[in-house]
Simulated scan of single mutants.
Amino acid sequence: MADPSYYVILNANAGTASATGVTAEVVAALFEANGLRAVVDARSDRALVDRIADAMASPAPMVVAAGGDGTITALAEALVGKDKSLAILPLGTVNALAKDLNVPLDMASAVATLATGEVHRIDVGEVNGRMFLHKVVIGMIPGVAAGREYIRGRQDTSAKIGFLRYLFRRLARSKRIAVVIEPRSGQRRIERVQALAVSSNAYDEGLGQFFSRQNLDRGTLTLYVLRHFGVRDFLRL
Protein backbone atom coordinates (compact mmCIF):
# COMPACT_ATOMS: atom_id res chain seq x y z
CA MET A 1 0.00 0.00 0.00
CA ALA A 2 1.31 3.45 -0.93
CA ASP A 3 2.33 5.87 1.78
CA PRO A 4 -0.26 8.48 2.76
CA SER A 5 0.10 11.98 1.31
CA TYR A 6 -1.60 13.64 4.28
CA TYR A 7 -1.33 13.19 8.03
CA VAL A 8 -4.36 14.80 9.69
CA ILE A 9 -4.37 15.84 13.34
CA LEU A 10 -8.01 16.29 14.32
CA ASN A 11 -8.92 18.36 17.37
CA ALA A 12 -12.47 17.21 18.00
CA ASN A 13 -12.79 19.72 20.85
CA ALA A 14 -12.27 22.75 18.58
CA GLY A 15 -15.24 25.11 18.30
CA THR A 16 -16.84 24.04 15.01
CA ALA A 17 -15.73 20.42 15.36
CA SER A 18 -17.36 20.15 18.78
CA ALA A 19 -20.56 21.90 17.68
CA THR A 20 -21.04 19.78 14.55
CA GLY A 21 -19.77 16.46 15.88
CA VAL A 22 -16.93 15.97 13.39
CA THR A 23 -15.33 12.54 13.74
CA ALA A 24 -12.27 10.81 12.33
CA GLU A 25 -14.55 8.68 10.14
CA VAL A 26 -16.16 11.78 8.61
CA VAL A 27 -12.77 13.35 7.85
CA ALA A 28 -11.36 10.11 6.41
CA ALA A 29 -14.40 9.71 4.16
CA LEU A 30 -13.96 13.23 2.75
CA PHE A 31 -10.31 12.56 1.88
CA GLU A 32 -11.20 9.23 0.28
CA ALA A 33 -14.02 10.84 -1.74
CA ASN A 34 -11.45 13.26 -3.20
CA GLY A 35 -8.95 10.53 -4.01
CA LEU A 36 -6.52 11.65 -1.30
CA ARG A 37 -4.58 9.17 0.84
CA ALA A 38 -4.66 10.27 4.47
CA VAL A 39 -4.05 9.08 8.02
CA VAL A 40 -6.42 10.72 10.49
CA ASP A 41 -5.19 11.03 14.08
CA ALA A 42 -8.10 11.77 16.42
CA ARG A 43 -6.51 10.47 19.63
CA SER A 44 -7.86 12.99 22.13
CA ASP A 45 -6.33 10.98 24.99
CA ARG A 46 -2.79 11.65 23.72
CA ALA A 47 -0.86 14.86 24.34
CA LEU A 48 -0.74 17.13 21.29
CA VAL A 49 3.07 17.22 21.41
CA ASP A 50 3.16 13.41 21.05
CA ARG A 51 0.69 13.48 18.17
CA ILE A 52 2.77 16.12 16.41
CA ALA A 53 5.88 13.98 16.88
CA ASP A 54 4.09 11.06 15.20
CA ALA A 55 3.09 13.34 12.32
CA MET A 56 6.69 14.48 11.87
CA ALA A 57 7.89 10.87 11.85
CA SER A 58 5.34 9.82 9.23
CA PRO A 59 6.22 9.64 5.50
CA ALA A 60 3.38 12.05 4.64
CA PRO A 61 4.76 15.29 3.13
CA MET A 62 1.67 17.29 4.17
CA VAL A 63 0.48 17.66 7.78
CA VAL A 64 -3.11 18.86 8.16
CA ALA A 65 -4.30 20.84 11.18
CA ALA A 66 -7.98 20.00 11.55
CA GLY A 67 -8.91 22.38 14.35
CA GLY A 68 -8.70 25.98 15.43
CA ASP A 69 -5.94 28.57 15.44
CA GLY A 70 -4.30 26.98 18.51
CA THR A 71 -3.92 23.62 16.78
CA ILE A 72 -2.65 25.32 13.63
CA THR A 73 -0.04 27.34 15.51
CA ALA A 74 1.24 24.31 17.45
CA LEU A 75 1.71 22.37 14.22
CA ALA A 76 3.27 25.30 12.40
CA GLU A 77 5.82 25.73 15.18
CA ALA A 78 6.96 22.16 14.68
CA LEU A 79 7.07 22.48 10.90
CA VAL A 80 9.16 25.66 10.58
CA GLY A 81 12.41 24.79 8.84
CA LYS A 82 11.29 21.23 8.10
CA ASP A 83 10.61 19.58 4.75
CA LYS A 84 6.89 19.07 5.42
CA SER A 85 4.09 21.48 4.57
CA LEU A 86 1.06 22.56 6.58
CA ALA A 87 -2.55 22.46 5.41
CA ILE A 88 -5.64 23.68 7.27
CA LEU A 89 -9.12 22.30 7.85
CA PRO A 90 -10.77 25.20 9.73
CA LEU A 91 -12.74 23.69 12.61
CA GLY A 92 -12.20 26.37 15.23
CA THR A 93 -14.41 29.19 16.48
CA VAL A 94 -12.68 32.14 14.79
CA ASN A 95 -10.51 30.47 12.10
CA ALA A 96 -8.61 33.72 11.61
CA LEU A 97 -5.67 32.32 9.66
CA ALA A 98 -7.88 30.21 7.39
CA LYS A 99 -9.87 33.32 6.46
CA ASP A 100 -6.69 35.24 5.68
CA LEU A 101 -5.52 32.40 3.44
CA ASN A 102 -8.95 32.12 1.74
CA VAL A 103 -9.34 28.53 2.87
CA PRO A 104 -13.02 27.50 2.52
CA LEU A 105 -14.67 27.37 5.94
CA ASP A 106 -16.86 24.45 4.86
CA MET A 107 -14.92 21.28 5.64
CA ALA A 108 -15.93 19.39 2.51
CA SER A 109 -14.83 22.31 0.32
CA ALA A 110 -11.58 22.68 2.29
CA VAL A 111 -10.69 19.01 1.71
CA ALA A 112 -11.57 19.26 -1.98
CA THR A 113 -9.29 22.31 -2.28
CA LEU A 114 -6.32 20.25 -1.07
CA ALA A 115 -6.43 18.26 -4.30
CA THR A 116 -5.61 21.36 -6.39
CA GLY A 117 -3.97 23.63 -3.81
CA GLU A 118 -0.52 25.17 -4.16
CA VAL A 119 2.11 25.54 -1.43
CA HIS A 120 2.99 29.12 -0.42
CA ARG A 121 5.34 30.51 2.21
CA ILE A 122 4.01 32.89 4.87
CA ASP A 123 5.68 34.89 7.62
CA VAL A 124 5.88 33.74 11.23
CA GLY A 125 6.54 35.88 14.28
CA GLU A 126 8.16 35.04 17.58
CA VAL A 127 7.57 36.34 21.09
CA ASN A 128 9.36 35.04 24.20
CA GLY A 129 10.54 32.01 22.24
CA ARG A 130 7.03 31.10 21.06
CA MET A 131 5.84 31.36 17.49
CA PHE A 132 2.70 33.12 16.28
CA LEU A 133 1.01 33.33 12.90
CA HIS A 134 -1.72 35.89 13.40
CA LYS A 135 -1.18 38.28 16.27
CA VAL A 136 -0.09 38.58 19.90
CA VAL A 137 -2.23 40.62 22.29
CA ILE A 138 -1.48 41.90 25.80
CA GLY A 139 -3.68 43.84 28.19
CA MET A 140 -7.40 43.55 28.80
CA ILE A 141 -8.50 41.53 25.74
CA PRO A 142 -6.80 38.19 26.59
CA GLY A 143 -8.80 38.09 29.83
CA VAL A 144 -12.03 38.44 27.86
CA ALA A 145 -10.92 35.61 25.57
CA ALA A 146 -10.22 33.43 28.62
CA GLY A 147 -13.80 33.99 29.75
CA ARG A 148 -15.07 32.87 26.37
CA GLU A 149 -12.99 29.69 26.58
CA TYR A 150 -14.50 28.95 29.99
CA ILE A 151 -18.02 28.64 28.52
CA ARG A 152 -16.97 26.91 25.29
CA GLY A 153 -19.49 24.25 24.34
CA ARG A 154 -22.19 25.56 26.69
CA GLN A 155 -25.34 26.87 25.02
CA ASP A 156 -27.47 27.47 28.12
CA THR A 157 -28.71 30.96 28.92
CA SER A 158 -27.06 31.03 32.35
CA ALA A 159 -23.61 30.56 30.76
CA LYS A 160 -24.17 33.43 28.33
CA ILE A 161 -25.49 35.74 31.06
CA GLY A 162 -22.55 34.78 33.24
CA PHE A 163 -20.12 35.62 30.44
CA LEU A 164 -21.71 39.05 29.90
CA ARG A 165 -21.48 39.80 33.63
CA TYR A 166 -17.84 38.72 33.59
CA LEU A 167 -17.18 40.87 30.50
CA PHE A 168 -18.69 44.05 31.93
CA ARG A 169 -16.92 43.47 35.25
CA ARG A 170 -13.60 43.20 33.38
CA LEU A 171 -14.36 46.40 31.50
CA ALA A 172 -15.30 48.28 34.67
CA ARG A 173 -12.14 47.20 36.52
CA SER A 174 -9.66 47.37 33.66
CA LYS A 175 -6.63 49.59 34.10
CA ARG A 176 -4.21 50.93 31.58
CA ILE A 177 -0.67 49.58 31.43
CA ALA A 178 2.53 51.34 30.39
CA VAL A 179 4.38 49.94 27.39
CA VAL A 180 7.65 51.06 25.85
CA ILE A 181 7.61 51.19 22.05
CA GLU A 182 10.92 51.21 20.17
CA PRO A 183 10.26 51.36 16.39
CA ARG A 184 13.03 50.58 13.93
CA SER A 185 12.77 54.17 12.68
CA GLY A 186 11.50 56.91 14.97
CA GLN A 187 11.79 57.84 18.59
CA ARG A 188 11.36 55.56 21.57
CA ARG A 189 8.14 56.38 23.41
CA ILE A 190 5.97 55.26 26.31
CA GLU A 191 2.24 54.67 25.83
CA ARG A 192 -0.43 53.98 28.43
CA VAL A 193 -2.84 51.47 26.92
CA GLN A 194 -5.60 49.06 27.80
CA ALA A 195 -4.48 46.61 25.12
CA LEU A 196 -1.74 46.27 22.54
CA ALA A 197 -1.58 43.91 19.57
CA VAL A 198 1.38 42.96 17.41
CA SER A 199 0.24 41.56 14.08
CA SER A 200 2.21 39.55 11.54
CA ASN A 201 1.85 41.96 8.62
CA ALA A 202 -0.83 44.67 8.54
CA TYR A 203 -4.59 44.22 8.52
CA ASP A 204 -6.46 45.50 5.51
CA GLU A 205 -8.28 48.76 6.15
CA GLY A 206 -11.56 49.97 4.69
CA LEU A 207 -15.31 49.51 4.87
CA GLY A 208 -16.27 45.99 5.92
CA GLN A 209 -12.69 44.97 6.77
CA PHE A 210 -12.34 43.44 10.22
CA PHE A 211 -9.06 41.84 11.27
CA SER A 212 -8.37 40.37 7.84
CA ARG A 213 -5.21 40.40 5.72
CA GLN A 214 -4.59 39.62 2.07
CA ASN A 215 -0.81 39.62 2.45
CA LEU A 216 1.02 37.36 4.88
CA ASP A 217 4.50 37.49 3.39
CA ARG A 218 5.61 41.13 3.52
CA GLY A 219 8.01 40.49 6.39
CA THR A 220 6.61 43.20 8.67
CA LEU A 221 5.20 43.47 12.18
CA THR A 222 2.38 45.97 12.73
CA LEU A 223 1.55 47.51 16.09
CA TYR A 224 -2.04 48.31 17.11
CA VAL A 225 -2.62 50.34 20.27
CA LEU A 226 -5.91 50.54 22.17
CA ARG A 227 -5.68 53.42 24.64
CA HIS A 228 -9.28 53.36 25.91
CA PHE A 229 -11.96 50.70 25.86
CA GLY A 230 -15.08 51.05 27.97
CA VAL A 231 -18.63 49.71 28.02
CA ARG A 232 -19.73 52.30 25.43
CA ASP A 233 -16.94 51.21 23.06
CA PHE A 234 -17.90 47.57 23.49
CA LEU A 235 -21.56 48.22 22.71
CA ARG A 236 -20.62 50.35 19.69
CA LEU A 237 -18.46 47.56 18.29
Score class of each variant (00 low, 15 high):
Ile88Thr: 00
His134Thr: 10
Arg170Asn: 02
Gly143Tyr: 03
Ser18Arg: 14
Ala195Pro: 01
Ala78Asp: 05
Arg152Asp: 06
Glu182Ser: 11
Gln155Val: 11
Leu86Asp: 03
Val193Lys: 00
Ala42Ser: 15
Val119Ile: 14
Val64Phe: 00
Arg213His: 05
Ala12Pro: 08
Ala12Lys: 08
Lys135Arg: 09
Ala53Glu: 14
Arg188Glu: 14
Ser158Arg: 11
Phe31His: 04
Leu36Glu: 04
Val40Lys: 09
Arg188His: 11
Ile72Phe: 05
Asp3Pro: 04
Gly68Pro: 02
Val180Arg: 13
Ala24Glu: 13
Ala74Leu: 11
Glu205Asp: 12
Ser109Glu: 13
Ser18Gln: 12
Gln187Cys: 10
Leu86Gly: 03
Leu216Met: 10
Asp106Ile: 01
Thr73Trp: 08
Glu32Gln: 14
Arg227Thr: 10
Ile151Pro: 02
Arg184Tyr: 06
Pro183Tyr: 03
Asn215Glu: 09
Glu149Asp: 13
Ala2Glu: 12
Leu114Gly: 00
Ala195Glu: 01
Phe31Gly: 00
Ser18Phe: 13
Asp156Ala: 04
Ala14Met: 05
Ala146Met: 06
Ala202Arg: 09
Ser109Leu: 12
Met62Tyr: 09
Leu30Gln: 09
Gly162His: 02
Arg46Asn: 13
Asn11Pro: 10
Ala76Met: 03
Ala78Val: 07
Leu221Ile: 06
